[in-house]
Amino acid sequence: DYYQTLGLARGASDEEIKRAYRRQALRYHPDKNKEPGAEEKFKEIAEAYDVLSDPRKREIFD
């Protein structure tokens, strides 16, 4: 679930989605986080943001 990936509730505003993405992206960015799995988590976060930030894709997902 993309909302869960970003730590959001369904119905989150565009601003909340953007804030959550930035927070998670900084936390799991491969240059900042060298833990195994961080790069994969970063890709999941980017995919979630891509879907939720686009109104058309978000409507299909919801």
Results as ranks from 00 to 15, higher is better:
E35G: 12
A25G: 11
E15C: 08
D1H: 07
I17R: 00
P30Q: 15
R23G: 10
D50F: 06
S13M: 06
A48R: 00
P30R: 12
H29T: 12
R10Q: 14
E59Y: 02
A46M: 14
I17M: 02
E16F: 00
E59H: 04
K34F: 02
A20E: 09
E44L: 12
E40S: 13
T5I: 14
G7L: 07
E47Q: 08
G7Q: 12
K41P: 01
T5S: 09
R56Q: 08
Y28L: 09
A46R: 14
L8V: 13
V51I: 11
L6Q: 02
Y49A: 06
E15D: 14
E35A: 05
D31Q: 15
Q24V: 11
K57T: 05
A48C: 01
F61S: 11
L8F: 00
H29E: 14
P36G: 05
Y2L: 05
D31K: 12
G37T: 04
L52C: 01
S13L: 05
G7K: 11
K34T: 07
R22A: 14
K32A: 04
G7C: 02
Y28R: 04
K18E: 08
Y2R: 03
S13N: 12
E35C: 13
Q4R: 08
A46I: 05
Q4Y: 14
E16L: 05
E35Y: 09
G11N: 07
I60D: 13
A25L: 13
E47W: 04
R22I: 14
Y49M: 12
K41G: 04
P36E: 15
E35Q: 10
L26K: 10
V51M: 11
Y3N: 02
P36L: 11
K41H: 08
E15F: 10
G11M: 04
I17V: 10
Q24W: 12
G7D: 10
L26Q: 15
R22G: 13
T5M: 10
S13C: 08
R56N: 12
K57E: 09
R56E: 14
D62P: 09
Y3R: 00
S13K: 08
G7P: 00
V51S: 09
D14R: 07
K57G: 05
E44H: 13
A38R: 08
Y49D: 05
N33M: 14
A25T: 11
L8P: 01
A9C: 07
Y21C: 03
G11R: 06
D14K: 05
E35F: 10
R10Y: 06
D54V: 05
T5Q: 09
K32H: 01
N33T: 15
E16T: 04
A46N: 15
L52E: 01
R56V: 12
L6W: 00
A48P: 03
A46H: 10
I60Q: 15
G37I: 13
P30T: 15
R22H: 12
K32T: 03
R58S: 02
E35V: 13
R56G: 12
K57C: 01
K34A: 15
Y2A: 05
A12Q: 02
D50L: 12
R56K: 11
E44K: 03
P36Y: 07
H29M: 14
D31Y: 10
R58E: 04
V51F: 15
K41A: 10
D14F: 08
A20H: 05
Q4F: 15
V51P: 01
K57N: 05
L6T: 01
I45V: 06
R10E: 10
E44I: 08
G7R: 06
E59G: 06
L8N: 01
E15L: 07
T5C: 11
P55F: 03
E44M: 08
E47P: 00
R27D: 12
E35S: 11
E39A: 13
R58N: 03
A20M: 05
R10C: 06
D31W: 13
R27N: 14
L6N: 02
E39Q: 09
A48M: 00
D50S: 13
G37W: 08
A20S: 09
K57V: 01
I17G: 00
I60R: 14
K34W: 00
Y28Q: 08
S13P: 10
D14H: 08
S13I: 04
Y49P: 03
K34Y: 06
K57W: 00
H29K: 01
Y21W: 09
D1M: 08
I45D: 02
Y3Q: 01
R56H: 09
A38C: 10
L52N: 02
P30D: 02
Y3K: 00
E16Q: 15
P36N: 14
G37S: 08
F42C: 04
N33S: 15
D54C: 11
L6I: 02
D62M: 09
F61A: 04
G7I: 01
A25F: 15
S53G: 13
S53Q: 06
E47M: 08
I45P: 02
E40F: 11
R27I: 13
E44C: 07
K57P: 04
E39G: 09
A9K: 13
K18Q: 15
L26G: 14
E39K: 15
D50H: 06
D62T: 07
D14L: 14
E35R: 09
E59A: 10
Q24T: 06
Y49V: 06
L6K: 00
